[in-house]
Simulated scan of single mutants.
Amino acid sequence: MLLKPVLRKLLTLSLIVSLGGCKKSENSTVAPPPLVVDETTYSTPLLASAPDPWVYQKDGFYYFMSTTGGNLSLRKTAKMSELSKAPAKVIWTPPPGNTYRDIWAPEIYFFDGKWYVYFSADPFCCNGHRVFVLENSSPDPTTGTWVDKGRIANPTEDFWAIDGTVMEQNGQRYFLWSGHRETADGVQRLYISKMSNPWTLTGPRVELSSPEYEWEKKGEPDVNEGPEVLKHGNKTFIVYSASHCSTDDYALGLLSASQTADPLDPKSWTKTPTPVFVKNPTGNAFGPGHNGFFQSPDGKEDWLIYHANVATGQGCGDARSTRMQKFSWNADGTPNFGQPVPTGSKLPRPSGE
């Protein structure tokens, strides 16, 4: 059929427009919405599953460890608010045939030009857990070789022990841990002993604290554990965890002494009769404890890091999440930790990030 000239012209114009439109569609792109990055706040918890958190601060970096159970894992970050972005590197796994199991509460330190990690493990002997230490001479603890320096214990008082940490006072290092008074005694108490080097204790152990108040005796057995050292002004504090971790009432307690006092003298220490950090049920923070401390990058703020469960009855398992929050100081120089911030809160990042 022959088309009239006018109709042929209209069809030709329509085809040109149609082809042009297809070509434009093939080459066009839709710009994505701008990425919104919140540079001022962070969300709690930092890590959904990371019990027994520990942070060591050195040369502009934070080194983070927590209980994994079967190995030692290390995260390195310049910003604690971005801890979840830092890859977790396994730095040590028990070699084949080794008797270590149930590896708990690792802590990393830098002493005398070398790195050390203290951790608790059951060596399949000796009636349960003991504390062990590894050494690494690399400048960066995420590299190099970790050498097993063995068990750190007093040979004449080598009983069940966990949660080793180090105190420096009056130019001397001391080792603190949670242990049993004797083999058949299940109550966990806090002990201290002088160190002759990063892997050797010297002299007798001294008992500094045992569960005595009702808030320290929730669950079985009675527990004082997770001692951590905090210094401020002219005072030295030991912040510890009390009651059994299987309960929602796991909480923080406080021992105080002068920074010039002899830490081996139990009379140097005063125990606060009430807990200093307890659960916040309305904020979904249960069993807060096993803490550590660090400062903001600019050194202007003090921060508490700890674990807590998001629901009641979750106990001592992997549901314990790592959280952090800024704390202040009371007029008498003691720390004021406030209460655990509610799960899901958005909080200001540490100053200087």
Rank of each mutant, 00 (worst) to 15 (best):
M80P: 08
L304I: 08
T236H: 02
A308V: 09
F277I: 07
T200Q: 07
D102K: 11
N136M: 04
S351P: 04
Q325Y: 06
D302T: 05
S84E: 14
F132S: 02
G299R: 08
L254I: 05
W199N: 09
P273D: 05
P87R: 12
W92Y: 12
E212V: 15
G150C: 01
D262L: 02
P273G: 06
A48S: 15
H290L: 03
L35G: 04
W177P: 01
N336F: 12
C125W: 12
S25P: 00
P342W: 11
N197W: 00
F111A: 02
S328W: 07
S178K: 00
A121H: 04
V55K: 04
H244W: 12
L19F: 15
V341T: 10
Y250C: 11
K76Q: 10
G313M: 03
T200K: 03
P94W: 10
F175I: 08
P348W: 02
K300P: 01
S351K: 06
T270L: 09
T99I: 09
I305N: 02
G253F: 09
Q259Y: 03
V206T: 15
K76R: 15
D318T: 14
P211T: 00
I108R: 00
A161C: 12
N280Q: 13
V37D: 04
Y109W: 13
D52R: 05
E26W: 14
S49V: 07
L201V: 15
L264D: 05
